[in-house]
Every structure is written in C-alpha cells, then in structure tokens.
Write a protein that binds this DNA or RNA. Structure first.
Length: 504
RNA sequence: GGCCUCAUCGUCUAGUGGUUAGGACGUCAGGUUUUCAUCCUGGAAAUCGGGGUUCGACUCCCCGUGGGGCUACCA
C-alpha cells in the first residue's frame, strides 16, 4: 500500500508552491490507490502559528484537495502535529544518544560564526569542525551540570551516500562534505530533518514527494534513517516554481499566497489545472484537465526536471476558460462574495448562498438573485478573473449613468443624428411585447428596421449600447436590453436623449 | 567558496540517433463584428557553447558556460 504525505509548515499563509506539492502527492497517491497523509510540521515554535495552520487547511479544502489522515480528521498514526509528538521523538533521540550517533555540542554562536568565516576564507566547505565530537562522557556531564547549554549533533560518517529519486534517478553525495549537523535542540525537541525521518517511519510513509529545495537535505536524512534502523522511502523531488527571473518563487517578486489568487477570483479548477501542467505534461496535446483526469493520467515519468516559471497569462487563459464553462447559477454563487467585498451589494444577515434577493448599495433597491444572474451572464464570456465582474456590471446596478456626449455619438455623427438613431431604437423597443423581450427578438426587430431604412448597424447600435451601458466597452446592446428589461431600457434611452438635447 | 542539480520558441512543453523540430499561452497580421471579449485563418518565434562517439546528433559521452537549490539551534 502506497502512503504519501505532505507536510506544510504553518509559518506563513498557504504558499502556491505548497499547493503544487500537495497536488502532486494527491495525484500520485490516488493514481495508485494509496493513502494521503497531512502532517503539520510545527517544530519551530517561534514561527509556527495556529492562524497559519487554519489558513493552510482551509485553502487546501477550498481547492478540493483531500486527504485520509491528518490533524483535522485523525487517523491510525495520530497525532499529526509534530508539536504533539515530543514523546515519540524523545524515545528515538535517546536511542541515538545511547548508540553514540549523537553527541552534545557546547559551541557558542560566536565560535560557530568564527568557524564559518574561517571556512569561507580558506575556501573550505561549510562544515562543523568537530570540536565537541570527542568529549568524554565525564566532561559532557560536568558541563551540563555546570549549566552550559548544548545542542545535539549527528555524527555524519565519511562515506558516500546515494538514494533513488523518481524524478532524478540515482543521486549521490559525499558524507565527508556534510559535517556533523545539529539535529535537536535538546533531548526532546528534534529539528525538522530528524523529525521528518521519525514521523515518516512512524506513519509508514512509502513515498516522500516534496520540492527540489529538499534534495540537498536528503543525504543527511538517509543517514539518520540508517542510524535509526529504518528503511528508506522512495523519494521524488519535484521541480520548483520560479519567478520570472528564474529564482525560487518568492513573496518579494510574486504573489505567492493562495489567498491572493482566491481574492482575485481564480477558480480552483483553473489553479489545479495550471499547477499540474507546471512541471508535468500528459504527452498528448490535451490542455484542459479536471482533477479526476489528472489523477488518471499522472505519472512521475512525465515530470520535468527543471523549474518552471509561474506564467500568469496561461493561468488567466485557463481561468477564463473555466469561467465560461460554469453553469450561470454556479458562476453567480462564485461572484457573489466579490460583489459584497467590493461594496456593490449589502451583506445579508443570513446565508449568502441561500438568499433569493439582495440590496444594491448604490440605490438601496432590492434585486433578485435571478436578475443578478442575468447581469453576471453579460460578463461571463469576457472575464478573466471573478473580481473584475462586479465593476463591469456596475452599470446595471445603478439608475444614474454618467454619459459622455462624444462617446454617445458613433464616429463623426452629430448630436442630432445620434438623437434620431436613439429615438429609432426607442420606438421599436416600445412596440415590443414584454413577453417577447429577449436578446434574439430585440436583435431581429432592430436589425430589420436598420435594413429597411438602409442604415449602418453602427449608426444605431453604437449609441444604443452607450445609452444603456454608459461604457466605451461593454456587452452588446441587445443582451443588455434583455437583462435590463423593457422598462429600464426605455428609461435609459430617454435619459440619453434628454442628456444630449440639454448638452451644449 | 563547497556540494547537488538543471538546460528545446518570450513562457509552459512534445521529442529518447535520421522530423519541414510539434502543441499551448502570449505576441503580430487578417477575417467575423456596433465597442470589448469570444470565434476563425495565417505569420514570426527555440535545440546554451566547444569537443568527441556515429554514416548521421536536439537526442549519447566529456568539458565549459549559464541558471537554480542547499550550505541555520527555519522548514
């Protein structure tokens, strides 16, 4: 049975790179009918915060990621937070100490800093010089009793280390170049590298799938595993996600928090599709994938070795694709939060998703969810992200449009001609029956008249569109009229005409 | 500095000794069109460099070069 795991550290908001690692773990595990474990790596008490843990878990769930064992859902190998596993670590730390794989190191920060500087100037590798490696038991005891503070170092044997990686094949390191590393602050608080190894063993993890930044940590961990008598898992180090300048994707140069993408209105579907394609390809020309399709097709053989730049334009393309594919009712549900956040609608007291009507902030009018749906539909084909829909349909959520006289006129038409064209549209619309007031019939009625009069489409349609939207760019006039309804449509045309007449 | 690792259009990538080096995003030109968006057609755009191996290298090997990661009592 394959058991994969992802292990976020709650020292910041959910990082887009973490999301990708989680995704690959899930794709691989599900593809092979395995189990996915979520473990919270909060050994760093200074930086770990519950707030971040909550954000990570919520973000992953929002994306539709799911796991079988974790701090939220429990499991056979609980607890799943490292901060709650100290007794387990203590046991193994003692074992390592007993077999002399570990030793106390009393070197001060200043001493270590001095060593580092010396190593740099001598162009030597950055390794610990072993000052405390050969202290006698008596000496150690004496120093501890005298109150000297110490950490635990692991004796790295001077041998070649190698391991197999599903992405990179066989990877080799030289133990003499690593040096004795600190693995625990004291006898019950291991550092990340050792805690990982212990947890992975205890949780019976078979596959360690993580970012490439951990590749250089792996040889040390392999050594810990050997010393502990565990068996080595199979590794897979997936390539990094990069900034446009090819450095590791970072806060400084990019939006890295999933929160940001969610707030801008990227859909989980698009994010998952995009992230999966960053460093993996199906070997076919398929570009659009649902999560189940990804699971079905995923394999490490098709995972890239080199890092991939986070190409926001492709994400946007995918996002607009998924926006267009959404049933309008569903799209409305997803746009709703943005309408509240941006202040277009008043936040209702009860459940947003169950509400059948809302209050428009601008004029305090009540709008039904059905009508809102019509407005949102106007922008469905145009939006790249959800957050741009509210401002684009704002002209529907107001009674007072501000007109620009030059914008109302098509090309070089005079104000009189424009008024005449608007009047023509108005008259036709007036004659239409309420029941028949739909996009195709409005289009047919007006276009027929244009043909009969021998006019150009633009001469009539441009002013009409601007009269209805007030915008330079907008959906077409027939769609807007349909969404607005006959009454409001006529009102807007009348407003535009009187605006033009009164304009000097 | 040391170690590890990577290298095909601007970007994501296909390609596993013989291809007009393919696709997607973006971009450019044209078309549809009342604006925007969509849509359709077409174009430009890549094998990091040098040595080998071979009848033949994008592909295999070596050496450079360049990028990235790690080098914490962070993960």
């Amino acid at each position: 049975m394959i058991r994969a795991r992802f292990a976020p550290s709650p020292t910041g908001f959910l990082h887009i790179g973490t999301v990708r690692t989680v995704l690959v773990n899930i794709l691989f595990a599900r593809r092979n009918n395995g189990v996915v474990v979520c473990r919270i790596e909060d050994t760093d008490k200074e930086r770990s915060k519950k707030e971040y843990e909550d954000d990570i878990m919520e973000g992953l769930k929002w994306l539709g990621m799911d796991w079988d064992e974790g701090p939220d859902c429990g499991g056979q190998y609980a607890p799943y937070r490292q901060s709650e596993r100290t007794d387990i670590y203590e046991r193994y730390l003692q074992k390592l100490l007993d077999q002399r794989s570990l030793y106390h190191c009393f070197c001060t920060e200043e001493e270590l800093e001095f060593q580092r500087k010396q190593n740099v100037s001598n162009k030597n590798p950055q390794i610990y010089n072993g000052t405390c490696a050969h202290l006698t038991d008596d000496e150690v005891k004496k120093r501890i009793e005298s109150g000297a503070s110490s950490v635990l170092r692991f004796r790295i044997p001077p041998e070649k280390i190698h391991f197999e990686d599903l992405v990179r094949g066989r990877v080799e390191f030289d133990g003499t170049l690593i040096g004795d590393v600190v693995v625990a602050k004291d006898t019950h608080t291991p550092l990340y590298g050792l805690a990982v190894v212990i947890d992975d063993h205890e949780m019976k993890i078979t596959h360690v799938i993580r970012g490439e930044e951990h590749l250089s940590n792996t040889p040390k961990q392999v050594l810990f595993i050997k010393a502990l008598g565990f068996s080595t898992p199979i590794y897979a180090h997936i390539p990094l996600i990069l900034n446009p300048d090819r450095s590791k994707m970072s806060k400084r140069k990019n939006k890295v928090s999933l929160l940001d993408y969610r707030a801008e209105g990227y859909l989980p579907e698009a994010l998952i599709n995009f992230l999966a394609l960053l460093g993996w390809n199906p070997g076919t020309e398929q570009e659009i994938f649902s999560l189940p399709e990804l699971i079905e097709q995923f394999s490490f053989e098709r995972v890239q070795k080199s890092g991939a730049i986070f190409n926001i334009e492709k994400l946007q393309w995918l996002n607009s694709h998924y926006i267009r594919a959404l049933p309008i009712n569903e799209l409305t549900s997803r746009v709703l939060p943005h309408l509240f956040d941006q202040g277009y609608l008043e936040l209702p007291k009860d459940d947003i998703m169950k509400a059948t009507s809302f209050v428009i902030n601008a004029n305090k009018e009540t709008i039904s969810r059905d009508l809102l749906e019509k407005y949102i539909a106007l922008e469905q084909d145009r939006a790249k992200v959800l957050s741009e829909i509210p401002p684009h349909i704002a002209f529907c959520l107001t009674d007072t449009l501000e007109y620009d006289p030059h914008l109302l006129s098509w090309k070089d038409k005079s104000k009189e001609e424009t008024c005449e064209m608007l009047g023509l549209g108005r008259d036709i619309i007036k004659q239409m029956k309420d029941a028949d007031f739909t996009t195709p019939s409005i289009e047919m009625a007006i276009k027929t008249e244009i043909t009969n009069k021998g006019l150009k489409n633009g001469a009539v349609l441009w002013p009409l569109r601007v009269a209805l939207s007030g915008q330079q760019n907008s959906p077409g006039p027939f769609e807007i009229a349909d969404a607005l309804g006959k009454e409001k449509t006529l009102e807007r045309i009348a407003n535009a005409i009187s605006f033009l007449i009164n304009f000097h």
